[in-house]
């Protein structure tokens, strides 16, 4: 798998038309990181596999093209802030951060081991370079990212703030408290991305709470809202570029995704919220994700 590690050296790319139309390199990274997520889930028995596979494309685009962050200076004052509000996507975030060069891939050999900082959710900043907030309890990340955005505005810093939410997380009232305040304060430097994989832990998200129409709800709360295919890099790219153009209101990207995306027998099967693959299942999954 080392061949793809060269991508680590790519750094955050300036977006050209070529890139907008051709995200082949990102697709290769996505394949590689999906493999690593599956291996970790199987070997270390880390759950939330479906949730990680649904958001990995979003994370890759963010870390390779969108976020102004420097893996060599992860605490730079003017950096953009990314908060994984759906903290259970940590196995995907850790892989993205390692591949992007925030820390050595070798550190992930400790994933899930006793005493390691790499477990099911991100710890507080200071333990893993690139992690901006400890999440895992849902409904905290977006309000924290909003606080960061307001602080940056007050300090006249150009940093933007991003939060990646799950659709289940939108059950939490604090998300809508933050939504109302961000709109009232016209915090246009805040972008929320919802990994809308249509499932939460124990059922269809729209059946548990009246979640839909989700994008319209955000519009009604005063946000600029877009709906995209969250596995299509060109659509992710356009949506984030559009979000940057908003100068009077926060922006939400409702990213339609497939839970477990990339492995046919895991896709849209909610058993994989908690299940981890056995050896046989891992081999079958990896066979679908061969790296060229």
């Amino acid at each position: 798998m080392d061949e793809a590690s060269t991508f680590r050296q790519l750094g955050c790319k300036k977006l050209t038309e070529h890139h907008q139309n051709n995200f082949e390199s990102l697709k290769k990274i996505a394949n590689l990181l999906r493999r690593r997520i599956l291996i970790t889930s199987s070997e270390a028995k880390i759950p939330h596999l479906g949730s990680c596979l649904s958001c990995i494309d979003l994370l890759i685009y963010l870390y390779w093209y969108e976020l102004k962050v420097d893996p060599n200076n992860p605490n730079g004052k003017e950096r953009d802030r990314f908060v994984l509000s759906k903290g259970h996507g940590a196995p995907a975030l850790f892989q993205a951060l390692a591949e992007r060069g925030f820390f050595s891939l070798d550190l992930l050999n400790e994933f899930g081991k006793a005493g390691s900082v790499f477990h099911e959710h991100p710890p507080k900043p200071g333990y893993i370079p690139g992690v901006e907030a400890a999440t895992g309890s849902l409904g905290h990340g977006l309000p924290m990212a909003l606080g960061m955005a307001i602080a940056h505005r007050s300090f006249n810093l150009p940093a933007r703030s991003y939060a990646l939410l799950s659709d289940g997380e939108c059950n939490e009232g604090s998300i809508w408290e933050a939504a109302m305040l961000a709109a009232a304060q016209r915090v246009y430097t805040l972008t929320a991305i919802i990994d809308f994989n249509k499932w939460q832990a124990t059922g269809r998200s729209k059946e548990i709470m009246a979640l839909e129409p989700l994008a319209d709800k955000w519009r009604a709360f005063g946000w600029h809202a877009q709906e995209i295919n969250g596995h299509n890099f060109a659509e992710i790219s356009s949506a984030l570029i559009n979000a940057r153009k908003e100068i009077d209101r926060p922006s939400v990207i409702v990213a339609h995704t497939i839970k477990g995306k990339g492995v046919t027998f895991i896709e849209d099967d909610n058993n994989w919220h908690y299940r981890t693959p056995n050896g046989e299942e891992l081999s079958a999954a990896l066979a679908e994700l061969e790296v060229d």
């Binding site: 802030r81 908060v83 900043p125 901006e132 907030a133 905290h140 309000p143 924290m144 990212a145 909003l146 606080g147 960061m148 955005a149 307001i150 602080a151 940056h152 300090f155 940093a159 604090s174 933050a178 305040l181």
Partner: peptide
């Protein structure tokens, strides 16, 4: 939560 985020920044 906002206050926490502000303090982190």
């Amino acid at each position: 939560s906002m206050a926490a985020g502000m303090a982190l920044s």
